[in-house]
Design a protein around this nucleic acid. Structure first.
Lengths: 222, 222
DNA sequence: ACCCCTCTTGACCACTCTGGTCTAAAGTGT
DNA sequence: ACACTTTAGACCAGAGTGGTCAAGAGGGGT
């Protein structure tokens, strides 16, 4: 017997956990990438073992089957996102634009340090017709909720000018920053980020933030 | 001989053009959808003939091969987009927010009346590793350029408040409206739009526009 | 020397699907 | 009756699928 069953009756692949971390990482990365690029159905276990540089048999020795691997990856992705992205957000900042700016920075950093996880999770949401076990659905829901609370909790409403609806202002600011982020990601796609100096983009980003503050916040004169 | 060669040495499928329009449409729609959902490589000609309700042989009687069909569809898509979307934009409106609002309306209408073309073209841009013949690349470029000029040409800069960079304001407004549009499309995805009353969403959209005007345009007091 | 257990490989399986061909027939016009 | 166009789908060779399994490698205990 080389699998143990936890209280949640979730199968933990023991031999896999005992692997040298570098090999573990190779497999996880290869799998995340394959699923991210192709979705669950079309992802090929043959491609995964090829890129992970392991024999075909090993994948099914470590994991029960393709679906088991996929569920493991979702679990893995949620854990790193919570640990390395959500937990990094500094909640003492009560200025909405500053808070969101910080979230954008953390998110971009995370995206470039874990591109496979990042792509895997966003494409997983697009994959229809896959039903996940309850405990994963639950964890995804919790992650979602935690993300939302990081965005909106404890925000100082009094900074906003009074002639506009604050909730709508939130959305407009969110769309603006996400739009900048998307355009940027698109522009830099395919380039090796390690060789790239992102500072000019951050400067540009801060200029946009300044405009958002000018337009959506109260003017400071008495 | 049932193909004719034009001056641009582009193959026009003559028997296909002589088809009853309803059958033509069935084939085009089935193909657009299959390519949109799967990308060029993974789109299946078997699925196309099945959904178009024609025999397998017919597809290769009408078109030289899979690639010929794909190129025909790109050409077709560009034509309808130019005719039914770009040409509908009213250029006399010099207020940027109003202009963009109008573009959003036309685009949404087009999207719901031609969802297959719309999805086909946007997913085509995501498809790497396909190189198109020069005349198609050229037409795509022209379409792009026409779209951009519809957005920015002849805009009245004097409406904007003077303490912000107008170019950056353009982007912020663009991201805001595109963000609203994306969120909405996402929310309504899968629902039958014919049965849906979109008016409340338009009302909400106009409220956002009002805020954008309040924040980015000059106040009218003397 | 031997056993036992874990770890590893890749050939192999039965199956599905691929783009494309081709034969044979049905329709159409004269 | 004949020529021509249009139609359907069985068929092809090849590639790829998730998953299995027999065979062996490595290492610790005796």
């Amino acid at each position: 017997m080389n699998k143990i069953i936890t209280k949640e009756s979730q199968v933990i692949p023991q031999p896999f956990n005992n692997l040298e971390p570098s090999k573990q990482k190779r497999i996880i990365d290869a799998a995340l990438k394959e699923f991210a690029e192709n979705g669950y159905e079309r992802a090929s276990t043959n491609q995964i073992v090829k890129h992970a540089e392991i024999g075909k048999g090993m994948l099914f020795y470590y994991f029960e089957n393709k679906q088991g691997l996929y569920h493991y990856l979702i679990d893995y992705a949620i854990s790193t996102i919570e640990r390395e992205y959500l937990k990094q957000i500094y909640m003492e900042e009560r200025d909405f634009i500053e808070r969101f700016s910080q979230i954008t920075e953390v998110k971009m950093t995370y995206h470039y340090e874990n591109p496979n996880v990042s792509n895997f999770i966003s494409n997983m949401y697009l994959d229809d017709e896959l039903d996940l076990p309850e405990h994963l659905e639950k964890r995804l829901g919790e992650m979602m909720e935690e993300g939302l609370s990081k965005l909106y909790e404890d925000i100082d409403y009094t900074l906003f000018r009074e002639d506009i609806d604050v909730e709508k202002a939130f959305q407009l600011i969110r769309w603006s920053m996400e739009g900048y982020q998307n355009d940027l990601l698109n522009e830099l796609k395919g380039q090796n980020i390690a060789l790239l100096n992102l500072d000019p983009y951050w400067d540009e980003f801060y200029e946009y933030l300044a405009i958002l503050k000018t337009t959506f916040y109260k003017t400071e004169e008495e």
